[in-house]
Computed example of a mutant assay.
Amino acid sequence: MENINFKVYTSISNLPENWNAIAASNHFLQTPYLEVLENSAPTNMECFYIGIFENNILVGTLLSQYLDLNKLESFGERDSFFKKHVRNFIFKNFASHVLFLGNNMITGQNAYALSKEIEHKHLSQLLIDCSDALILYFKNKGIKIHIVSFKDFYENNATLFKKHHFKNLYEFNAQPNMIFNLNENWTSKEDYVAAFTKKYRDQYKRAHKKYNGIIEKELSLEDVVSLENRINELYHYVAKNAPFNTFFLADNHFSTFKKQCGNRFKIFGYFLDNKLVGFHTLLLNGEVLETYFLGYDDEIQKNNMLYLNMLYNMTEFGIEHNFKKIIFGRTAIEIKSSIGAEPVYMSGFILHTNSFLNKYIGKIFQNLEPNLEWNQRHPFK
Rank of each mutant, 00 (worst) to 15 (best):
P243K: 07
F244Q: 13
T246C: 03
T246W: 00
F247D: 03
F247Y: 10
L249I: 01
A250H: 15
A250S: 14
N252D: 14
H253R: 03
T256R: 07
T256C: 12
T256F: 08
F257E: 11
K259W: 08
K259L: 12
Q260R: 11
C261P: 00
N263V: 06
K266L: 12
I267S: 03
F268H: 05
F268Q: 06
Y270R: 09
Y270Q: 14
F271L: 03
F271A: 06
F271Y: 07
L272C: 06
K275L: 12
L276Q: 02
L276W: 04
V277A: 00
G278A: 08
H280T: 09
H280D: 10
T281W: 07
L282F: 03
L283K: 09
L284K: 15
N285H: 11
G286D: 05
L289I: 12
E290F: 04
E290K: 13
T291H: 05
T291S: 14
F293Q: 09
G295C: 03
Y296A: 10
E299C: 06
E299M: 13
I300M: 04
Q301T: 03
N303F: 00
M305Q: 14
M305S: 15
L306Q: 09
L306N: 10
L306D: 09
Y307S: 06
L308N: 08
L308R: 04
N309C: 15
M310Y: 02
L311I: 06
Y312V: 14
Y312T: 10
N313Q: 03
N313F: 01
M314Q: 15
M314H: 04
M314N: 06
M314P: 02
T315E: 03
G318T: 04
G318P: 00
I319T: 04
I319F: 11
E320M: 11
N322E: 06
F323L: 07
K325T: 10
I326D: 07
I327V: 13
F328A: 08
G329W: 10
G329R: 12
R330V: 01
R330C: 02
R330K: 12
T331Q: 11
T331C: 02
T331M: 01
A332Y: 01
A332W: 01
I333C: 01
E334Y: 09
I335F: 04
I335T: 15
K336L: 08
K336N: 10
S338F: 01
G340C: 11
E342R: 15
E342Y: 13
E342G: 02
P343G: 05
P343K: 07
V344S: 15
V344H: 15
V344N: 15
V344Y: 15
M346K: 08
